[in-house]
Amino acid sequence: MNIDLSLMPVTLDVAHVGLGALSLLLIIIVVIMAMFRSSSNTNESTVEPNKEQVTPSDKVDESAIKQNLLKETTPEAALQLLMLLQQDARLIDFVHEDLAGFSDSDVGAAARVVHEGSRKVLQQVFNFEAIRSEDEESRITLVQGFNASENRLTGNVTGEAPFTGTLIHKGWRVNEVSLPQLAKEHDVYVVAPAEVEL
């Protein structure tokens, strides 16, 4: 999804560039939502509600959805990750709890379980690398032809590259994903089996 901003006509006003960026963002959201929907395995109507959010944006993007430029993600990997996060970090249990009525120390104890476990899972499955090596809050310059999917411009986005601005977040890139292999008949929808002690 590379968009070279320098290709835009210079006469185009700021508002349109902003709108373009917004629509891009919305598409990303739609993709993510679609991924989660398919992973939750519900057969409800597909992406309709999200489409409403998309309508105010450019027509080009609308047709992109119609032309099926989007790819479907398989729920398997998402469910597998969910299983690992439940198994080692009790994430589903934690998120399903109502925190009201519990003291901070209770929440803290549970948070340690979730944090320690999630960390272990993420370290095992993904190999992360910061996209930018500069310190956050320092001034950096993006030269022409920079990678727009790795570097997101915000704020007073005008003019042409090189862009100079403050690095707010250094970004993360996953270099390697190593999910466990699955047995062919394994039911990934069971993210945590019921446990019965005899």
Partner: peptide, 18 residues
């Protein structure tokens, strides 16, 4: 180093030993 022993059931809060 804090030690936590999570509960066995799905209720994590209150039942986790610290």
């Amino acid at each position: 180093v804090p030690l936590v022993v999570p509960s066995r059931g799905s209720k994590l809060l209150g039942a986790t030993l610290r």
